[in-house]
């Protein structure tokens, strides 16, 4: 399969799913703002008819609106970062930033499947040279498959560490490591391989530090 085919299949699916999830959450934030505005209207109308309106109540409603505006702002910021992840063909990616964005983008998807995502603190900075969107695509595919499993843990931990010449993204705890996510296309794009650590119940994605130094040139 050519890179174009892989991007068409995997990349567009990822982009569509993440965009749909973000837009759904934005709708919810707007709906809550809308209800708080409506409640303010109701209360002010009742106040005009003689029912007392406590200032504390107004403060609570204002705080509700402010909280939802912040939520929507964060969603849009994440969506914008994700959209721009396709811009650079080659970029030095800080995996803590990449995983942090991935956790934010996929938190609703995880919640829909009854789970949560937790980004573990990094012991040291981990950087690789790759196309940022491909890494987001890889993480999305892994999360999608791992969280779909009936025996999936409620909380999935994400982390990354450096090894000589490579970086390792980890997902844990994962049971049934005899079966790993079936994602050959995107693994091939990143020249990555999957590994497992049964003792620590960890799925590992091993990525070369610079995929462009190891990529073959005729795969396009």
């Amino acid at each position: 399969m050519s890179h174009s085919d892989i991007m068409a299949e995997s990349g567009l699916r990822c982009f569509g799913a993440v965009s749909a999830s973000i837009s759904h959450e934005l709708k919810n934030a707007l709906a809550i703002i809308n209800e708080n505005a409506g409640l303010l209207e109701d209360l002010s109308r009742m106040a005009q008819n003689g029912r007392p309106l406590a200032p504390e109540r107004l403060q609570v409603l204002a705080a509700n609106v402010t909280r939802q505006v912040r939520r929507a702002d964060a969603l849009i910021k994440h969506m914008n970062q994700f959209a721009h992840s396709v811009d650079a063909l080659v970029a030095c990616c800080d995996l803590e930033d990449v995983l942090s964005l991935a956790a934010a983008l996929n938190s609703r998807m995880a919640a829909m499947k009854g789970g949560t995502l937790l980004l573990e603190p990094f012991a040291a900075p981990v950087r690789i040279t790759a196309r940022p969107f491909w890494i987001q695509n890889l993480i999305w595919r892994c999360l999608n498959e791992l969280l779909e499993r009936p025996d999936a843990e409620k909380q999935l931990h994400l982390n990354a560490r450096k090894t000589p010449g490579a970086a390792v993204i980890t997902f844990s705890p994962v049971d049934n490591l005899l079966t790993t996510p079936h994602i050959p296309g995107v693994l091939n794009l990143l020249k990555a391989v999957q590994a497992v650590d049964f003792q620590n119940r960890e799925l590992q994605i091993v990525l070369p530090e610079d995929i462009f130094a190891t990529r073959d040139t005729n795969s396009d």
Binding site: N28, A31, I32, E35, N36, G38, M46, Q68, A111
Partner: peptide, 17 residues
């Protein structure tokens, strides 16, 4: 709704009606 703030507010507004 899992957006509890939404349904809590909606319930209060419906009660007014």
């Amino acid at each position: 709704d899992d957006e509890t703030e939404l349904v809590e507010t909606l319930a209060e507004r419906l009660a007014f009606r």
